[in-house]
């Protein structure tokens, strides 16, 4: 599915991953509240629940902006199928060779005042842990995008 949003996101991501353009790329800081209702160790899944909502993103290395493959990203949200705290609302995925990831998950609905998603880079690998909490610009949206720039440990 290629919407205007994903086109812009993918194009800008691929532009930014050119090493010459990305020198000195700053790491993404953990967002306030990003780790709320985190449950460590969610399994890697093809989709969370019945799917229908597409969470997309990219993962790159701080400094040179190189796309990172096989990076674990855990995702959870309040959806039409469960609360953030429910185990069934959590799932993880790995980035592809181009540093992108995506997760098919149930539709995110507003909870605690905002329609938002939680994402974590949370393994004990060579990069520092980061928690994100992107907010949907409209709660009727069926996609959301989040970019990670990871700092080596």
């Amino acid at each position: 599915m290629l919407t205007r949003r994903t086109l812009i996101a993918t194009t800008s991501a691929s532009l930014l991953t050119l090493p010459a353009r990305a020198a000195g790329l700053a790491p993404t800081p953990t967002m306030r509240g990003g780790a709320n209702n985190y449950r460590p160790g969610a399994p890697i899944v093809d989709r969370i629940g019945g799917g229908g909502f597409l969470m997309t993103g990219t993962v790159r290395r701080a400094g040179d902006g190189v796309p990172l493959e096989n990076i674990r990203i855990q995702i959870w949200a309040h959806t039409t199928e469960g609360h953030e705290r429910d185990q069934r609302s959590h799932g993880a995925t790995l980035t592809r060779a181009d540093g992108t990831f995506q997760m098919d998950m149930p539709q995110i609905v507003p909870a605690f005042g905002q329609a938002h998603c939680h994402l974590a880079h949370d393994d004990d690998g060579p990069f520092q842990t980061v928690f994100l909490r992107p907010v949907m610009s409209r709660s009727s949206d069926t996609t959301l995008h989040a970019d990670f720039v990871l700092q080596p440990v």
Binding site: G33, N37, H83, F112
Partner: peptide, 9 residues
Amino acid sequence: ITSPPDVVD
């Protein structure tokens, strides 16, 4: 009760 960390924040 619904989400302790959000209320603590």
